[in-house]
Nucleic acid binder design. Structure first.
Lengths: 188, 188, 188, 188
DNA sequence: AATGAATGAGGATTCATTCAT
DNA sequence: GATGAATGAATCCTCATTCAT
């Protein structure tokens, strides 16, 4: 009697395992076997469900992006209209996005995007959404919302980067940093 | 007497080839053989001179850092006292540091720093120098030089990142962006 | 369900192939590929089952030791109480232990024991067992069983050595030699 | 002005270095470069003088044999006619032959002899001389000098073997052991 | 659905040896 | 006489991927 409906469960487990494994290893140098073992199945099954290593990685990247999107939506839902930019920044540094594991995986996908077209597309989508969200949110409070959005997006990436490299910055410090820049540049 | 003095030539060629190869490939997934071939020698000779793959990569990283340091020194030498921060920013986006290849290699070393202690040390050294230079340069013009230096450093890294990911930003755009943030935040 | 239970078969085949290959080559200078080919599989599979070259070699060494132990047990089971020492000596030169291949492999492992801790431990275990068995067996017939056991153990090793080096000694000659020394020294 | 008469000096240095290096490493896994470095010259020069690695090893083996022969001659020169067998045994365990280094090198050459014809010839020569010397020396004191010589030769090899494998036996213990067997078997 | 079995392709590293100077 | 330079050929090991069951 075959088990039914295993596919989504397996895929989910593999995606989680991929993020965790990359986060632990701190690099893309992670084998399919390691991921599969962590997900509690054989590497052959991982291939069966995803077709190949790249696809597993891309699925993990999509998952990180959608987690991020969800976080943004939650924060935006509770934000006053003139606090929407703050809310987005908070979402960026929320634990689900800014844990060491997530950061490590995130940074790693940047590298993947240098060679994999689909990964690049995903990153560009993320950038477009982030900037678009920020621009929209900044419209009530900034004189040049688009430029400020670009600045904040770059700053956020930079803060991710140094957090990935063991900078002792806590999420709180990073959040405070980004928020203070937001305030200063809105005032300017 | 044998042919003499090849060592510095070979090492130099390998370092160049490493940066170029990583830049072209857009990832650390570059073999010693590829590097050696590009440098016009056998992989055995590359090992002979550097001892191993990691050391070749670290030498390339050191080279990038020292190129950057030289660029900074040049720009600072020609800068008026109240333009020193600008000068540093210009150095960051000077062609020798901001060519697609250099950026790609640079980003790639970030990944290496996640697992290699010496690479991490080198990155931290770079960060410390950059921030220290910036802090010093900002003293005459900013109310909180240290905080502003941190912001600029993060912003610069973020701009590198998106440049590495095929953002159509030109060096000029990136420079203008960073300089404008500098001005706004000094005024604030 | 997949093909099952190959592991013990493969391991066994590899252990046999290792002993044969070393025996043929007459040295530790034997590659994993050679062994794997002789065992009818890829070198990758050999690594998969054993983890590395050293472990393959150690498994082969363990096999030789256990073959020897079995031979001793068989001979002892059929021996009169005052013939137990003779039985042990016969076991040492039984075909399964004293074939050219086995000797060659045996000698070769001696070399391995000079640099590999686990191999050394195995050799010491073998020595301890041999001497212990001999001492016990000699108690009824010798005045200083321990000293005589040490002498016989060294003599046996020496006879192995020259057999490994193409001495025309047959197993029978070697057995007769050792037995005659046993008799002489018991009488003394 | 070329240096004259360097050849014997270089060859001597290489032979010494080979023995020392093998002794230190405890195995044949010694590179020509290591040997040459220890001998204070380039590996190219080592090849120049010896033609290849095997020849270097064979030269070292010859040296060990001739050292042994010299030791035997010295001991025999000072021995009373009925003490000649004792003298040979003492020579076998004299420091120049029985130092850990010498033993390690010695054992290692046994392995070489399994594959190299010239090494085998040298070992056989050594055996022949040892047995011949012993037989001659035993004539006045043993009933079957030839058989006893064979026994002693094998015993001596066995004692070397266990000394090579870190048996705590000192040279003195080994000497006493061999001498006591000699006495017992002469009496028998 | 699931997996143990199996491998080919490749990658870092080592080393004896050759050669130009 | 002497050596730095240079390499081809190996060797261990890894890993994504395929397949039979």
């Amino acid at each position: 009697m075959p088990k039914l409906g295993m596919e989504p469960i397996r895929r989910e487990a593999l995606v989680r395992a991929t993020i965790d494994e990359i986060g632990d290893a701190g690099s893309l140098h992670v084998t399919v076997s390691q991921i599969a073992r962590r997900a509690g199945m054989s590497s052959a099954l991982a291939h069966h469900y995803f077709g190949g290593k790249d696809q597993i990685f891309l699925a993990a990247m999509r998952r990180i992006l959608s987690d991020f999107g969800a976080e943004v939506r939650v924060e935006l839902a509770n934000a006053a209209p003139d606090r929407r930019a703050e809310a987005i920044i908070r979402a960026c540094f929320a634990p689900s996005c800014f844990s060491p594991r997530a950061i490590s995986a995130w940074m790693t996908f940047y590298v993947m995007a240098q060679t994999n077209a689909e990964a690049l597309r995903l990153w560009q989508l993320y950038q477009w959404r982030l900037r678009s969200n920020l621009t929209h949110a900044l419209r009530p409070v900034a004189s040049d919302p688009k430029a400020l959005a670009a600045t904040l997006a770059a700053l956020i990436d930079g803060l991710y980067l140094r957090s990935a490299l063991n900078d002792p910055d806590t999420p709180e410090t990073a959040t405070r940093h980004a928020l203070s820049v937001l305030r200063l540049l809105c005032a300017a």
